[in-house]
Design a protein around this nucleic acid. Structure first.
Lengths: 263, 263
DNA sequence: GCAAATTTGTTCGTATGTATT
DNA sequence: CAATACATACGAACAAATTTG
């Protein structure tokens, strides 16, 4: 057997979708109709449909039918211009498409730093950190989930608004500068991609087949400290890969004002 | 039925894997043994295993058995320090793990620009471009696939080595500067994640279930031109998401020398 | 609001094919 | 070649979700 039957059927359907014969959003034949059409068992048809589902080309809705996937217009997040977790500049990132973004209220917790977080923030494992979580919605659908971690120490030193479950109106960066003289001089983003956690799948309403990956951006922000730089915040953002893209700009590029200050 | 049987079984196995009871690399019980163990049919067991496979937790090998996945030590590619497609600095990116990287010979072709490429390089659709393709291996396994596109015009103006199917020893950037005075002043990276194309799946030996996403970085490089900047190269790199991470640094961060020149 | 019809989801049993040891 | 283990394929029945009358 050169190709299994279910793959042949899947390839045939794929060709019809890619040729445009089956339009995005349109309903496909039912499993029983496809069984008759291809002279195969329903289970074999289901294997073929599963193959297409795994590639995001179709989606099945129980009780309704199977539909050709619509392509999502991705939201582009500019990392190099990314102001931080609680900035007012969110709205401007996507309104070029006329979509309505919104940001949830902040959920604030005091947690103990795990090993990885402690190492990044140069704390001891178990030291307390403030976690500030925000959700970003577009047209009412959850789009990204962001959690910032600050050493508890910053509150002790005067940045008490970090414990407030509201947006910091001036932005966290400006606030930390005003209260503590803490100024960001650099940051590092680690980008990794993997299957969603159960929480993420539930939160973003991702199909539970693990098909859609989540892009995780872990940003460490650094402030000046005489000779060295010290980390003062870690921000972890989860972006479902089916609706997000990232953009990074360096130096002089069209549409970006050159910044001579080093970042 | 709160949870389908196959999901209950999958969750039980997942818990055993995550607890360490089933070690990475170890062989799991066979489908028939699991059928007896869980008092379910073999097909239901297979549904449970498929669920775990979709999450990359296990992998089945026909004729051998099913095994708990080993975690791959990811290669971290530093985008902000990424010199370009044909630099000699590749080797230094991963040898901290003692792995052996290598870069394939270049495959050079003259192609016609498609709509997207033409728009980015400010050409007309169908204009000729030079494509230079390279493969990167680590320990003999394909790790990333990179294709750079240059306007054909650059060869006419004197950069004839672009048509040579060998590495440009001094690096493409230095070569273009020497021959044409073309100097990179900025670049933009667009990062997107999606299922592999058939070609990518075959090339990277990804399982054909579409489980592992591919990170695509599309870099546009800009050179100076009096008032404006002009694009002169597009580099598209495909990174299988199971073995790659990206790192982006801005401003002053530990381990990075601050660059005051704007990028 | 309920009942029927439609459609996908889950589960079982069985048989045969293919890859590996 | 034989044994083992996963892969493919078929048929059947019932459950759950959704729409429709």
């Amino acid at each position: 057997m050169a190709e299994p039957l279910y793959r042949q059927i899947a390839e045939d359907l794929r060709a019809r979708i890619e040729s445009g014969e089956l339009e995005p959003g349109s309903q496909m034949l039912t499993e029983y109709e496809l069984r008759d059409r291809y002279q195969a068992s329903r289970n074999t048809i289901r294997d073929a449909l599963r193959w297409l589902t795994a590639r995001g080309m179709i989606e099945a809705r129980a009780g309704q039918g199977t539909f050709v996937s619509r392509t999502i217009d991705p939201l582009v997040t500019v990392l190099s211009d990314w102001p931080g977790p609680e900035s007012a500049r969110y709205a401007s990132e996507s309104d070029d498409n006329g979509r309505a973004p919104s940001v949830s209220l902040v959920r604030v917790e005091v947690q103990e730093a795990d090993e990885s977080l402690a190492a990044t923030l140069r704390l001891a494992e178990g030291d307390e950190v403030i976690s500030r979580q925000q959700v970003r919605y577009i047209d009412g659908a959850p789009w990204s989930l962001q959690t910032s971690f600050y050493p508890r120490d910053l509150v002790t030193r005067g940045a008490e608004l970090l414990l407030s479950a509201r947006d910091i109106a001036m932005g966290a960066d400006a606030y930390l500068k005003q209260e503590l003289g803490l100024e960001q001089v650099g940051h590092e983003d680690r980008i990794q991609v993997g299957p969603p956690t159960n929480d993420e799948a539930r939160f973003f309403k991702l199909s539970d087949d693990g098909r859609i990956s989540v892009i995780t951006v872990r940003r460490t922000c650094y402030a000046d400290n005489d000779l060295d730089v010290v980390p003062y915040r870690v921000t972890v953002t989860a972006f479902p890969a089916d609706r997000n893209q990232l953009l990074v700009q360096f130096g002089r590029v069209p549409g970006l004002i050159s910044r001579a200050d080093g970042y």
